[in-house]
Protein backbone atom coordinates (compact mmCIF):
# COMPACT_ATOMS: atom_id res chain seq x y z
CA UNK A 1 0.00 0.00 0.00
CA UNK A 2 2.84 2.37 0.92
CA UNK A 3 4.57 1.71 -2.39
CA UNK A 4 1.27 2.30 -4.19
CA UNK A 5 0.72 5.71 -2.51
CA UNK A 6 4.33 6.68 -3.17
CA UNK A 7 4.02 5.78 -6.87
CA UNK A 8 0.81 7.81 -7.23
CA UNK A 9 2.29 10.82 -5.38
CA UNK A 10 5.55 10.77 -7.36
CA UNK A 11 3.70 10.36 -10.68
CA UNK A 12 1.34 13.24 -9.82
CA UNK A 13 4.30 15.41 -8.81
CA UNK A 14 6.22 14.67 -12.02
CA UNK A 15 3.14 15.32 -14.19
CA UNK A 16 2.42 18.68 -12.51
CA UNK A 17 6.07 19.71 -12.77
CA UNK A 18 6.23 18.51 -16.38
CA UNK A 19 3.13 20.59 -17.20
CA UNK A 20 5.16 23.77 -16.67
CA UNK A 21 7.64 22.80 -19.40
CA UNK A 22 5.81 20.48 -21.79
CA UNK A 23 2.60 21.86 -23.39
CA UNK A 24 1.37 18.28 -23.93
CA UNK A 25 1.10 17.84 -20.16
CA UNK A 26 -0.63 21.17 -19.50
CA UNK A 27 -4.15 19.67 -19.49
CA UNK A 28 -3.15 16.89 -17.10
CA UNK A 29 -1.47 19.48 -14.89
CA UNK A 30 -4.63 21.63 -14.79
CA UNK A 31 -6.76 18.58 -14.00
CA UNK A 32 -4.49 17.49 -11.14
CA UNK A 33 -4.31 21.01 -9.72
CA UNK A 34 -8.12 21.29 -9.84
CA UNK A 35 -8.37 18.01 -7.92
CA UNK A 36 -5.86 19.40 -5.41
CA UNK A 37 -8.01 22.51 -4.89
CA UNK A 38 -11.12 20.36 -4.31
CA UNK A 39 -9.20 18.18 -1.85
CA UNK A 40 -7.91 21.28 -0.07
CA UNK A 41 -11.52 22.46 0.35
CA UNK A 42 -12.49 19.09 1.78
CA UNK A 43 -9.42 19.24 4.04
CA UNK A 44 -10.78 22.52 5.48
CA UNK A 45 -13.90 20.65 6.53
CA UNK A 46 -11.79 17.87 8.07
CA UNK A 47 -9.73 20.57 9.83
CA UNK A 48 -12.89 21.99 11.40
CA UNK A 49 -13.95 18.51 12.58
CA UNK A 50 -10.48 18.11 14.05
CA UNK A 51 -10.86 21.43 15.89
CA UNK A 52 -14.25 20.35 17.25
CA UNK A 53 -12.88 16.97 18.31
CA UNK A 54 -9.87 18.50 20.15
CA UNK A 55 -11.98 21.03 22.02
CA UNK A 56 -14.76 18.55 22.82
CA UNK A 57 -12.11 16.28 24.40
CA UNK A 58 -10.84 19.22 26.46
CA UNK A 59 -14.33 20.00 27.72
CA UNK A 60 -15.09 16.34 28.51
CA UNK A 61 -11.85 15.96 30.48
CA UNK A 62 -12.35 19.38 32.11
CA UNK A 63 -8.81 20.36 31.18
CA UNK A 64 -7.21 23.70 31.98
CA UNK A 65 -8.65 26.39 29.72
CA UNK A 66 -11.72 24.37 28.77
CA UNK A 67 -13.85 27.51 29.26
CA UNK A 68 -12.27 28.89 26.09
CA UNK A 69 -13.07 25.62 24.32
CA UNK A 70 -16.76 25.99 25.24
CA UNK A 71 -16.72 29.55 23.91
CA UNK A 72 -15.02 28.42 20.71
CA UNK A 73 -17.52 25.61 20.06
CA UNK A 74 -20.53 27.83 20.76
CA UNK A 75 -19.16 30.52 18.40
CA UNK A 76 -18.41 27.92 15.75
CA UNK A 77 -21.88 26.33 15.89
CA UNK A 78 -23.71 29.69 15.99
CA UNK A 79 -21.70 31.10 13.06
CA UNK A 80 -22.14 27.88 11.07
CA UNK A 81 -25.92 27.82 11.67
CA UNK A 82 -26.28 31.50 10.80
CA UNK A 83 -24.32 30.97 7.59
CA UNK A 84 -26.40 27.92 6.65
CA UNK A 85 -29.73 29.67 7.30
CA UNK A 86 -28.89 33.18 6.01
CA UNK A 87 -26.31 32.14 3.33
CA UNK A 88 -22.65 33.28 3.56
CA UNK A 89 -23.19 36.51 1.57
CA UNK A 90 -25.87 37.85 3.93
CA UNK A 91 -25.30 41.21 5.67
CA UNK A 92 -25.28 39.56 9.11
CA UNK A 93 -22.35 37.37 8.06
CA UNK A 94 -20.48 40.49 6.94
CA UNK A 95 -21.09 41.96 10.39
CA UNK A 96 -19.64 38.84 12.03
CA UNK A 97 -16.57 39.08 9.79
CA UNK A 98 -16.05 42.85 9.91
CA UNK A 99 -17.25 43.35 13.46
CA UNK A 100 -15.66 40.39 15.21
CA UNK A 101 -12.94 38.55 13.30
CA UNK A 102 -11.16 41.52 11.70
CA UNK A 103 -11.09 43.66 14.91
CA UNK A 104 -9.77 40.68 16.91
CA UNK A 105 -6.98 40.08 14.39
CA UNK A 106 -6.22 43.83 14.39
CA UNK A 107 -6.05 43.75 18.19
CA UNK A 108 -3.59 40.84 18.00
CA UNK A 109 -1.51 42.88 15.56
CA UNK A 110 -1.55 45.76 18.05
CA UNK A 111 -0.42 43.42 20.83
CA UNK A 112 2.36 42.27 18.55
CA UNK A 113 3.70 45.83 18.25
CA UNK A 114 4.10 46.03 22.02
CA UNK A 115 5.59 42.53 22.33
CA UNK A 116 8.08 43.21 19.51
CA UNK A 117 9.22 46.43 21.16
CA UNK A 118 9.62 44.54 24.44
CA UNK A 119 11.56 41.77 22.66
CA UNK A 120 13.90 44.32 21.08
CA UNK A 121 14.57 45.88 24.49
CA UNK A 122 15.39 42.46 25.98
CA UNK A 123 17.45 41.28 23.01
CA UNK A 124 20.81 42.32 24.45
CA UNK A 125 20.02 40.60 27.73
CA UNK A 126 19.12 37.40 25.90
CA UNK A 127 21.97 37.42 23.40
CA UNK A 128 24.67 40.02 23.89
CA UNK A 129 26.65 39.66 20.67
CA UNK A 130 27.71 41.81 17.73
CA UNK A 131 24.80 40.81 15.48
CA UNK A 132 22.23 41.73 18.15
CA UNK A 133 23.86 45.13 18.42
CA UNK A 134 23.78 45.57 14.63
CA UNK A 135 20.11 44.51 14.62
CA UNK A 136 19.14 47.02 17.31
CA UNK A 137 21.15 49.92 15.87
CA UNK A 138 19.72 49.29 12.39
CA UNK A 139 16.16 49.11 13.73
CA UNK A 140 16.67 52.34 15.71
CA UNK A 141 18.15 54.15 12.69
CA UNK A 142 15.29 53.04 10.44
CA UNK A 143 12.61 54.02 12.95
CA UNK A 144 14.23 57.43 13.45
CA UNK A 145 14.70 57.85 9.70
CA UNK A 146 11.04 57.02 9.05
CA UNK A 147 9.70 59.35 11.74
CA UNK A 148 7.19 61.87 10.46
CA UNK A 149 8.31 65.32 11.57
CA UNK A 150 6.55 68.66 11.05
CA UNK A 151 9.42 69.93 8.90
CA UNK A 152 9.68 66.77 6.73
CA UNK A 153 12.29 64.00 6.76
CA UNK A 154 15.02 63.99 9.34
CA UNK A 155 18.14 65.43 7.70
CA UNK A 156 20.82 62.87 6.66
CA UNK A 157 19.10 60.05 8.59
CA UNK A 158 15.84 60.22 6.65
CA UNK A 159 17.25 61.35 3.32
CA UNK A 160 20.49 59.37 3.05
CA UNK A 161 21.10 56.73 5.77
CA UNK A 162 17.62 55.12 5.80
CA UNK A 163 17.33 54.78 1.99
CA UNK A 164 20.89 53.45 1.81
CA UNK A 165 20.24 50.83 4.49
CA UNK A 166 16.90 49.71 3.02
CA UNK A 167 17.87 49.85 -0.66
CA UNK A 168 21.44 48.53 -0.45
CA UNK A 169 22.22 46.60 2.74
CA UNK A 170 18.78 45.24 3.63
CA UNK A 171 17.79 44.51 0.02
CA UNK A 172 21.06 42.69 -0.65
CA UNK A 173 20.76 40.67 2.55
CA UNK A 174 17.10 39.86 1.87
CA UNK A 175 17.91 38.63 -1.64
CA UNK A 176 20.69 36.43 -0.25
CA UNK A 177 18.33 34.91 2.31
CA UNK A 178 15.62 34.38 -0.30
CA UNK A 179 18.07 32.66 -2.67
CA UNK A 180 19.00 30.34 0.21
CA UNK A 181 15.33 29.64 0.95
CA UNK A 182 14.69 28.98 -2.75
CA UNK A 183 17.55 26.46 -2.90
CA UNK A 184 16.23 24.78 0.25
CA UNK A 185 12.74 24.63 -1.24
CA UNK A 186 14.13 23.12 -4.46
CA UNK A 187 16.01 20.33 -2.67
CA UNK A 188 13.08 19.63 -0.32
CA UNK A 189 10.73 19.39 -3.30
CA UNK A 190 13.12 17.02 -5.07
CA UNK A 191 13.33 14.81 -1.98
CA UNK A 192 9.54 14.53 -1.97
CA UNK A 193 9.53 13.84 -5.73
CA UNK A 194 12.09 11.06 -5.25
CA UNK A 195 9.99 9.60 -2.44
CA UNK A 196 12.82 10.04 0.07
CA UNK A 197 10.48 12.18 2.21
CA UNK A 198 6.90 10.92 2.25
CA UNK A 199 4.60 13.22 4.16
CA UNK A 200 1.61 11.42 2.63
CA UNK A 201 1.44 8.29 4.71
CA UNK A 202 4.22 5.85 5.19
CA UNK A 203 7.78 5.76 6.37
Amino acid sequence: MRVFTAVIAIAAGILVLGGYFLPALADVQTLLLNWAVILAGTAALVGIFNLVSVHSDKIRRQEKGSGYSILLLISLVVTFLFAMILRPDHEAMDIILNGVIIPIEAALMGLLTVSLLYAAIRLLRRRADFMSLVFLVTAALLILGSATLPFGNMPVLGTFIRPWITQVLALGGARGILIGVALGTLTTGLRVLFGADRPYGGN
Binding site: L33, A36, V37, A40, V181, G184, T185, L186, T188, G189, R191, V192, D197, P199
Partner: peptide, 16 residues
Amino acid sequence: GSLLDARGGSALAGLA
Protein backbone atom coordinates in the same frame (compact mmCIF):
# COMPACT_ATOMS: atom_id res chain seq x y z
CA GLY B 1 2.05 27.65 4.68
CA SER B 2 -0.21 26.07 2.08
CA LEU B 3 1.04 23.13 0.07
CA LEU B 4 -0.62 24.55 -3.03
CA ASP B 5 1.72 27.53 -3.39
CA ALA B 6 5.39 28.48 -3.14
CA ARG B 7 5.29 28.40 0.67
CA GLY B 8 4.90 24.64 0.54
CA GLY B 9 8.68 24.10 0.71
CA SER B 10 8.96 25.26 4.30
CA ALA B 11 5.85 23.24 5.22
CA LEU B 12 7.43 20.10 3.75
CA ALA B 13 10.69 20.80 5.61
CA GLY B 14 8.65 21.17 8.81
CA LEU B 15 6.89 17.86 8.14
CA ALA B 16 10.24 16.11 7.61
